[in-house]
Design a protein around this nucleic acid. Structure first.
Lengths: 139, 139
DNA sequence: TATAATAACAGTAATCATTACTGATTTGTT
DNA sequence: AACAAATCAGTAATGATTACTGTTATTATA
């Protein structure tokens, strides 16, 4: 199954490259649709998964959201998910290396640990500014 | 919405208490059905979510699985998910406290970090014994 | 450069976990 | 016992994602 070039896939990759947020397939679809009005949502899903499979982009499945997000930046870095608006934001923990926790987890466990998934939850700046926390106090 | 007693909810909680694995709603359903042949899957979902909301059980949404798992043990502890058979297993990292990584994540970030989700991935013992890794080498 | 093989496409249907709706039944309280 | 409210079983709906199908685009080869 050698990967052939396709203008749709190129447009999807190019759009993802232009974003610092972490778009969903639906969002990529609605934007790439401006250049390819006939593009299908299935095509977007297929290409995003294919690019992720090839290691050219990253696919993040945050359990709390129940919807996949895609990232042009494949370098290891940490993410934050806003519990209120569901925004996915990069954390500036540049130097921090979490690889040692896999070794810790291996101790006393008889399976093979190959990696981990980690992300942080809370309220993002713009939701804080909108007074989301106060609103929750008032029920 | 004061919570009233129901025999179905009691049976669901009791079943979960008897398990050391981390059953899905479907699995709870198929087992509680032996005592309540007419119980509905929706009832199981509603009660599991209600119990989780009340803090009596824990709900774990592992992104890699795309299906929720429930845990009678609400004490903080770490989980392992087998990439091959999807088993969810407790890790024996008893003393380890990960709460400090939230503080680390807060540095240089202008939102509010309230917590994190962490789980480990790999191959469990019984899959290793079945030679899963060798099978994958042979494509 | 024609041709043949096949990857990719658009459009649509299907899947699967989960939630929402509905009218009947329990439960807890006066 | 009587009432209000929570819960139920059964079923329909939702929403993200994947699978299918006949057609089109891309690439390697003759």
């Amino acid at each position: 199954m050698a990967m052939k070039f396709s203008r749709q896939r190129a447009a999807i990759l190019s759009f993802l490259k232009s974003r610092k947020d972490h778009p969903t397939a639906e969002f990529v679809y609605s934007n790439v649709k401006e250049e390819f009005p006939n593009i299908s949502l299935g095509t977007v899903y297929r290409n995003l998964n294919q690019l992720a499979e090839a290691g050219m982009i990253a696919k993040h499945s945050f359990g709390v959201l129940g919807i996949d997000h895609f990232d042009y930046d494949t370098r290891p870095h940490q993410h934050f998910v806003c519990s209120h608006c569901s925004a996915v934001i990069d954390l500036p923990m540049d130097g921090r290396d979490f690889s040692s926790i896999d070794d810790e987890a291996s101790k006393g466990f008889d399976g093979l640990i190959q990696g981990h998934r980690l992300y942080f939850c809370g309220i993002c700046k713009s939701c804080l500014d909108r007074g989301v926390l106060q609103d929750e106090e008032n029920h």
